[in-house]
């Protein structure tokens, strides 16, 4: 063993730098999470600050907006998962049925593009298109004789807009993965099915969907693993004083309390609460899918 290590000593030197990077930028913050259980005072440092147990968690659970913030986070994530997750699967299956390669290529190239638009520009576009005075959407609304709608200023519009913009931005990119999985399905299966007189609907149901099921499961578990961190930047940018009742989610609240008000310990506790829920969700989903399909991520 030592001989092996000696022979490859350069490789150890090489990996030392990324290991140090992870120690500093990933593990040091994990060590710092303990301030969630302490009363962090900058001059005393993480270690020297006093333990206060679960005080910050208790304060969060008892705060008047606890239910609202946790509810908003869960609702937004689950709605997003329910709508934005299946959509790329449908698009990929439909695209896969196109016979004209040029058309397929054109559509793919087009729907893929919004993925590279930054969150700032995406939300900027929402503000522009939905503006009550100059926005295109409200020009259409008023053309039908309605009053202009304050899309970015009404709480009920926050979630639909959030999800719609996710579908708009991410469908093309996500569908690429499913398309690759579809391309990997043995074409003989389709040929045989056609011989037996199976229609396109039948082939999608009995060949395509089972064929990409493993990919769907992996991506589903990964999506759930990110459920509670979903799209913080977008929610943050879409937030206005008027829609805060629906747009305040745990991460935006952590930002407000932690960075703007510098209540480090309290906000670290909220952040930790979020991570723990996330981890629990991930483990549950992984276990459940393992039971149902025999396949899990870990």
């Amino acid at each position: 063993m030592l001989g092996k290590m000696k022979k490859n000593y350069e490789l150890y030197l090489l990996i030392l730098i990324p290991v140090a990077y992870f120690a500093i930028f990933k593990y040091w913050p994990m060590y710092g999470v303990q301030i969630a259980f302490k009363d962090f005072v900058a001059s005393k440092g993480v270690w020297g600050s006093e333990w206060v147990g679960l005080e910050h968690f208790q304060r969060f659970f008892e705060s008047y907006n606890f239910k609202q913030i946790v509810g908003n986070t869960l609702l937004l994530s689950l709605l997003n998962l329910a709508i934005a997750f299946p959509f790329p699967i449908i698009v990929a299956i439909m695209l896969n049925q196109l016979r004209q390669q040029k058309m397929k290529k054109f559509i793919q190239t087009t729907i893929y593009a919004p993925y590279f638009i930054s969150t700032v520009v995406l939300v900027g576009m929402l503000f522009i298109f939905l503006s009550p005075t100059s926005g295109l959407v409200n020009h259409i609304v008023t053309a039908f004789g309605h009053e202009p709608i304050m899309f970015m200023g009404e709480e009920k519009w926050f979630r639909p807009l959030y999800i719609f913009s996710s579908v708009w931005q991410e469908t093309g990119f996500a569908s690429v993965i499913y398309l690759a999985a579809l391309a990997g399905i043995d074409p003989h299966l389709h040929e045989a099915a056609v011989m037996d007189g199976a229609s396109k609907w039948h082939r999608i149901r009995h060949i395509d969907l089972p064929g990409i099921a493993p990919t769907i499961i992996v991506l589903f578990i990964m999506a759930v693993g990110n459920l509670m961190n979903v799209g913080f930047e977008k929610a943050f940018l879409m937030q206005t004083d008027l829609n805060v009742a629906t747009s305040e989610i745990i991460p935006t609240y952590v930002y407000k309390v932690g960075i703007q008000r510098a209540e480090y310990s309290f906000s670290a506790a909220i952040g930790l609460f979020n991570s723990v829920i996330n981890l629990i969700l991930l483990v549950i989903v992984n276990k459940t899918t393992k039971k149902i399909s025999g396949k899990g991520l870990f």
Partner: peptide
């Protein structure tokens, strides 16, 4: 494993900010 653990758990915004 040392690398992969960080995919499942991270310190979060505030502890990273303090680092």
């Amino acid at each position: 494993t040392f690398f992969i653990i960080t995919m499942f758990f991270n310190g979060g915004i505030i502890p990273t900010y303090l680092v």
